[in-house]
Write a protein that binds this DNA or RNA. Structure first.
Ligand SMILES: NC(=O)c1ccc[n+]([C@@H]2O[C@H](COP(=O)([O-])OP(=O)(O)OC[C@H]3O[C@@H](n4cnc5c(N)ncnc54)[C@H](O)[C@@H]3O)[C@@H](O)[C@H]2O)c1
Ligand SMILES: NC(=O)c1ccc[n+]([C@@H]2O[C@H](COP(=O)([O-])OP(=O)(O)OC[C@H]3O[C@@H](n4cnc5c(N)ncnc54)[C@H](O)[C@@H]3O)[C@@H](O)[C@H]2O)c1
Lengths: 229, 229
DNA sequence: CCGGCTTTGTGCAAACATTCACAAGGGCGT
DNA sequence: ACGCCCTTGTGAATGTTTGCACAAAGCCGG
């Protein structure tokens, strides 16, 4: 997903690749903290997070100099710093549009609320679904989208409708003031500048796996190997 | 560049970034085909897929020279070529481990089977769930994992269990012969060389969105708009 | 058959990302 | 108080991805 190339490398010059890894570090740090670990070296943390330790250090160095040479990082302190950088010290109201199979699974997902993401609304256009309660939340009609977004100051919208409705739902969310969208529908959404879209696409992930699986298979399988040279 | 004389280039040269975009192009091409479009230019396809047209052309050039200068690409032919490259001309049996909220949503997901991915098994360790039918499939006990993987020659496994079980499920899948894993559990899986893991993590995506949302908020909010004192 | 128009395929340079390798810094044992 | 040992933070080297810009190539109208 290409984002705008961030106009100027202002005070916040954190590379996109780093931003994408910070949540992984954070999760790893939480696990360590729960485990009673007070201090961790870049090497240990890197192994636990599945990355190279130099990369981890460089990533963390973008947030500031929070380690102690010869010792490592204070787990609790680093949790705080990473959380702050990611904006997790505040609450983020989220609206989920589409209460089908996926929308319901998302609403039921505990890990959702666990990091400050609060479901402010669960909307659907199907009258048969509206009014039912999911995870303690009553499904609202999607006519309420604008109202919900404004009342709860929702800035993050999750699209879990069929592909055909995704763009129009997206447009409405944006018009209502949402500036960040997580899209589960298999379509490329088009949005105005200033709005961030991230997609989660099961089918794409499987196809990427299939590509590599095929490559592996043609290696050890039939004798169709090494032609080039 | 040294001109490799022949053969389609099955040789291992497609950049990872390209591989990740091919499924998007493929989806876009299917939409065009359904729409009756027979031929498409790189510019049109690029816009529909949400990428730069030079990038698209370079991506496609890795598969071979399938365009016609002055005209564009034949949609149907390109669908075939991209599909072949991704390994979608064959069937990929998939096993889903964990038939909870997410596992059930996945099993019910139509787009799953639509590209040659066939659910060969849906497994769970909970006796209360085993035996129930989901999307026409009986949930099997996870003791059957090895049997299912071997009998159906499953090479792609989908992990939809709680985080705590994910690594052990992963180990068993790998031991049984699975070499590609799609992981929905919020943990870093460790696997031997030769095994591919891709993760889908809702929580990470939200945190990335929160980071950018925070930055946007601090732009227009308080007078941080550096203008030069 | 030719010249003009359009669009591909790619050389190249810049931007971005990863990794190595080590000097600088800091704690700890003596 | 000192020096040893460990680990951070980062310059520099290397690798990857992007996007521009344009020559080469194919179609079409005349
Ligand atoms: N289920 C999965 O595992 C899965 C996986 C990957 C992607 N997806 C994608 O996620 C999306 C949802 O999948 P699903 O399985 O939940 O589908 P679903 O059909 O079960 O649910 C879709 C819901 O959206 C509602 N809806 C339709 N149009 C709407 C609108 N304009 N406004 C509000 N609500 C609307 C429908 O009433 C329905 O309840 C689809 O785009 C699907 O391709 C699903
Ligand atoms: N629900 C979501 O929207 C969502 C979103 C993102 C990530 N996730 C992650 O996906 C995973 C599944 O989420 P869920 O909401 O479906 O949870 P869930 O609790 O509803 O389902 C988990 C299922 O896995 C089964 N299970 C547990 N251990 C097992 C084992 N060893 N072998 C086989 N099956 C086993 C359980 O019996 C249960 O049926 C979790 O790791 C969760 O963090 C879920």
């Amino acid at each position: 997903m290409s984002h705008r190339p961030v106009s100027a490398n202002g005070s916040h010059g954190i590379p996109e690749a780093t931003v994408a890894r910070l949540p992984v570090y954070l999760r790893t740090l939480y696990a360590l903290a729960e485990n009673g670990t007070a201090t961790v070296s870049s090497e240990e943390l890197a192994v636990a997070a599945g990355v190279n330790s130099a990369k981890l250090r460089k990533d963390l160095s973008h947030l500031g100099s929070y380690g102690t040479r010869g010792v490592g990082y204070d787990v609790e302190y680093l949790v705080y710093q990473v959380s702050r950088e990611l904006g997790l010290t505040q609450d983020w109201p989220v609206a989920i549009i589409g209460a089908g199979n996926l929308g319901r699974a998302l609403a039921n997902y505990g890990g959702f609320a666990s990091r400050g993401f609060r479901i402010a609304g669960l909307l659907d256009s199907d009258a048969a679904v509206v009014g039912t309660r999911i995870a303690g939340l009553a499904v609202q009609h999607s006519d309420e989208m604008e109202t919900v977004v404004r009342r709860h100051r929702v800035s993050i919208g999750v699209i879990a409708t069929p592909a055909g409705s995704a763009q129009s739902v997206c447009d409405r969310l944006v018009a209502a003031g949402v500036t960040s969208i997580l899209n589960f529908a298999p379509v490329v959404l088009s949005v105005p500048d200033g709005v961030d879209v991230r997609k989660v696409d099961l089918s794409i992930e499987l196809q990427i796996l299939a590509f590599h699986a095929q490559r592996k298979a043609s290696m050890s399988g039939p004798a169709v190997q090494v032609v080039g040279s």
